[in-house]
Design a protein around this nucleic acid. Structure first.
Lengths: 213, 213
DNA sequence: TAGATTGTTAATCGATTAACAATC
DNA sequence: TAGATTGTTAATCGATTAACAATC
């Protein structure tokens, strides 16, 4: 059924389209042209049409795009029509922050387990979920259908844990540790490297100072 | 002194070079060729040389690159040779997680204030810093030299707060709220959109299922 | 029907890779 | 000096933008 490969650049832009369409939908806007959307989002209308047409013709000549329809279609493309069971591996501040972030749950990402190696954290209750000891992970994975594991452990523990997760069947890792995980090809890894983001910021600050604005 | 514009793609790669060079340095490696580094990082040697040469010739023909020297140079380019004073605006879980992340401080990003509008959080101590009421921000900014504000507020409060921060002199915002801040051109904004990252992950999961691996 | 706007092809632009002369 | 490897130019590739025929 599928065929052509979608470029990473396009996929990165989809959630942003989704967000803008969601806003429009909330504000009761029924239809929008690529041109109007392009002004709001500050991208070219051409890019919007190209991006969307990777997935099919969602618009209508002379009319534009139906906001609700397009919103749902992009949601479907992004896989947001499904529910995902997620575990958080690393119950520190970041892991707890992710757990507490209610919006994920609304989008279908359900956190059903939190694990840590640190005995001090084990037993702590985070939004109704008790932090368990990491040793229980294999059994937990056997007994539950988990699609995503978020890795919020320090760098030193992350690689080993990632291997354990994969050995026990995890196929998608949301990696917050500051290293590149080397895992089998069929495992999907999405990285969030906060420190790299911060460095990009400081690069821009320094550069601005050098060039005098 | 400066001149040519560095592309965003190059800047995004610099922190990763920095990380790999830091690892090599730690392991006592003295020099490395673009070819060896390319194998480790899984990018082309050509790209490494091109990227680095945007900033000057850091290598030596027949020798390669001195790891320590290159590490320091990239650090300098990224602005990591300076100290930044940062405030966290939004004292919820994510704000606290950032505050507790000691590694930032080691890299020169010093958090010297946390603020929230929620009175329940005000007064709470996070790694030695007391959360203050957001009303105090203008005065705090007058009395302290702040280079970076991290915005970890809900979407609904983020825009207004960003405007306040900018009015009070903040020139760089690390934005964790799920919206695009519309601010004057001279304000640097670096976005971390966690939900968009998660959607890219779910896109890849869905896609894999459709195409049957 | 006329006007609007898409879907799509073609043109342009920028980024990546390859090649190689310069040089340590 | 010979070998290695950079710095840099040229070639290729991919992504973005422009243009316009198709069509609602």
């Amino acid at each position: 059924m599928e065929g052509k490969e979608i470029s990473r650049a396009v996929v990165k832009r989809l959630p942003r389209y989704y967000r803008y369409l969601g806003d429009l939908l909330e504000r009761g806007v029924e239809r929008i042209s690529s041109n109007d959307l392009s002004e709001k989002m500050r991208v070219t209308a051409s890019q919007i049409r190209q991006d969307l047409n990777n997935f099919g013709g969602f618009g209508q000549q002379g009319y534009g795009y139906n906001v609700e329809f397009l919103y749902n279609e992009i949601g479907r493309i992004l896989g947001l029509d499904k529910t995902y069971h997620m575990i958080i591996v690393g119950g520190g501040n970041l892991g707890q922050a992710l757990t507490n972030y209610v919006k994920f749950e609304k989008r279908g990402f359900k956190i059903i387990g939190i694990f840590d190696v640190n005995p001090e954290l084990v037993g702590k209750n985070v939004r109704g979920i008790e932090i368990r000891v990491a040793d229980e992970i294999p059994r937990f994975l056997r007994e539950n259908d988990i699609q995503i594991a978020a890795l919020t452990l320090p760098k030193s523990q992350a690689e080993e844990m990632a291997v354990l997760l994969v050995e026990n069947g995890v196929k998608a890792i949301w990696n917050f540790a500051h290293l590149d995980l080397r895992l089998p090809e069929d495992v999907i890894v999405e990285n969030v490297h906060l420190s790299e983001s911060l460095m990009q910021l400081s690069y821009n600050i320094s550069r601005r100072q050098e060039t005098g604005r």
